[in-house]
Amino acid sequence: MTTPSAKTLSADRPALTRTSRAYLTATHYALSELTRNRFAMGLLIIFVPLWYYLLGALFDSATVAFKYAATGVMLQVNSHNLTLLTAGLNTITLIVGFLLFAQTRSSAAFDRRLVLCGYRQVTLLLAKLTGMVVIAALVALYAALALLFFWRPPSLPLVWLGFFGDALIYGALGLFIGAVVTSEITGFFLVIMVSLLDTVFQNPVDNPVANKPILRYFPSYGPTQIVVGGGFTHGFTGYGLGYTAVWIVALALLGLLCFWLRTRAWNAGGRSHAGPVGPVGPVAQAPA
């Protein structure tokens, strides 16, 4: 619909123009909203180094056996340094999970309005994913750099990669919980409990059942294997990436499916500029 005061993009322009503009706009505001979460940013800046400091002070430098599945051998690692790595995973998963949960939950009705006004769901979904990837990468980078104040691992990029992978897993988890849970306190509780149990189980210093085969089915198994590779070895076998990718993809698909169901419109009227739209529901007989 074109009027002198409100012109739509003309039909002969490439379709990509409107789509890419919509994607860039949605991504910009998704990132803006994520970074404006002052509570989460405060947690990131203060909680990550504080957690490193506290756990570093509490755990002595003893030797502990860690099953490094990439080589199949039991690595004899420094318990203090291993605890720093799992502490990093713990804080990252909490912060990113919380961020994505809070954003998805609070913007559910707003996102639906955007869809009713013409936003394609897939565009919003891609924007949310982009925001998640960027924020996960930045949070992981901050946590990896903060680690240097306490310990210098042999391969910081590999530690970052493991942090990044776990941040993505919990970002996707936050997206999923935010799309299905309406209570704020319930969502926070879920993110905290899953993160605590998951990351604590991976560390043999805190947990006598660590190194058991069942742990490979936990979300942080793959990322823990990667960060241990970066913290205690000099080579990267790629082990752990597959587990990490499966969790990311599974949780992201679940979250995006729930998001899609919550934001879909039965009538595409807001998008249509010509021609009838509908019918919107089955024709059935209602009681008089």
Binding site: N267, H273, P276, V277, V283, A286
Partner: peptide, 11 residues
Amino acid sequence: SAGAVSLEGAL
């Protein structure tokens, strides 16, 4: 639950 809606133009 039943019925149909159609419209012309932007909403």
